[in-house]
Write a protein that binds this DNA or RNA. Sequence first.
DNA 1: CCGCAGATGTGAAACGCTTCACAGACCGTG
DNA 2: CACGGTCTGTGAAGCGTTTCACATCTGCGG
Lengths: 224, 224
Amino acid sequence: MVSSELPKTGFLAHASSDLADLLNSVATEVDLEEGEVLFEQGDIGDALYAIVSGALEFSILSREGRKLSLDVMRPGALFGEIALFDPGVRTATVTALQPSRVRGVKNADIMTAIRKKPELGIDLIQLAGERMRWMSSQLNDQVFLPMPARLARKILYLTVDGSGHLSLLTLSQAELAEFVGATREAVSKTLSSWKRAGVIDATRGGVRVLDRNALQVMADLHQV
Amino acid sequence: MVSSELPKTGFLAHASSDLADLLNSVATEVDLEEGEVLFEQGDIGDALYAIVSGALEFSILSREGRKLSLDVMRPGALFGEIALFDPGVRTATVTALQPSRVRGVKNADIMTAIRKKPELGIDLIQLAGERMRWMSSQLNDQVFLPMPARLARKILYLTVDGSGHLSLLTLSQAELAEFVGATREAVSKTLSSWKRAGVIDATRGGVRVLDRNALQVMADLHQV
DNA sequence: CCGCAGATGTGAAACGCTTCACAGACCGTG
DNA sequence: CACGGTCTGTGAAGCGTTTCACATCTGCGG
């Protein structure tokens, strides 16, 4: 049923072993191609997932088809926890950005596991808590910050990686625009001005961070 | 320690009895005057609260002091669940809109209770799930909807009450503006136009809904 | 019943972002 | 190596909302 090693990064790094045990016993593995959708906002879902390898995008959609991307999730990340005890409509869409492998555990299996090992329930509440904090900060940013500050924050956020900082972010300007909730043109214009200032270097299909501190300043400024 | 009856409305209406038992045994009661702040974004907190009576406002703050109000919570509502297993900085501010009474249960007490009654952990994950769904919809609204649609939605949302619909919403236009994330002037102008159309009636310090269906339409429209 | 503070109405100007339109750059593929 | 499609840069006009500046209303305390 399970064929590959579970990573010890992301949320899994500090969760109790009960969670890893669960993912090693009753989970089913799913492989995704680049661009494949694991589940979509509006689907009925009752499974929690853990990322084994690859990278998945987490986004929400408007009724008119506009997309707001929120996160790029990497190995060790857990998601889909809302559906755990409130199996129902998914509130977000998850898409593979690269060929990826995930493990899913069904609602019912987690319920029985929690009744046997309450510690597991505590882990999952903590997971939900972290997600809530994070969602709350996203709402804060979207409501209170002007576009350039949101852009700076997302670039900084998406270039941290367990150990340290990645300087290169491989997202097109169109994709970045979906992350900040703005148009490609607006993103292009601010990136251009930052490039002129030597803060970043923009190449086709990617952004390289040159001066992290300067970006940090942009992220706090309310005017450019 | 506990002197008054716990309501059977809100989240408490469909939670397991373990939760009510917990709130009846180890909880401490707090009385709040109108305008009093129970906790503030940034505080360290480790308690979950249930509302016994009154009404509390749930809001988030920007660093510059702007406020986005999200909800008015009423008897039977539970909140502060993020702090449960991730005791740390509160992500929101809770203020009494009227004299209110709440019951708080500490992190540690809930942890021991869950280890004895795993069912309780399931209840709390469900609570977290509901909150997540709701936060997600708030983010969706704020990002994708124009101000008039957000205003219509908030008015509709804040005038439902367990049994049916309240027609009168007692919030000033300035307060409504904080709920929709806009200025008082902008809110005043759209309310005026709706008043002219006979959809609502605006009096000093309150809005009365006359035509719920028409408001429903405004809530879905992307242009006025 | 007067006065006054807070609540509401409304217009004009400014601003940030979108929309639209298009030009140029890059890159895989035939 | 030329072509087509995607990605990027940028200007001009438009739109919704904020900001600012007042006028007006309303209810309560003196």
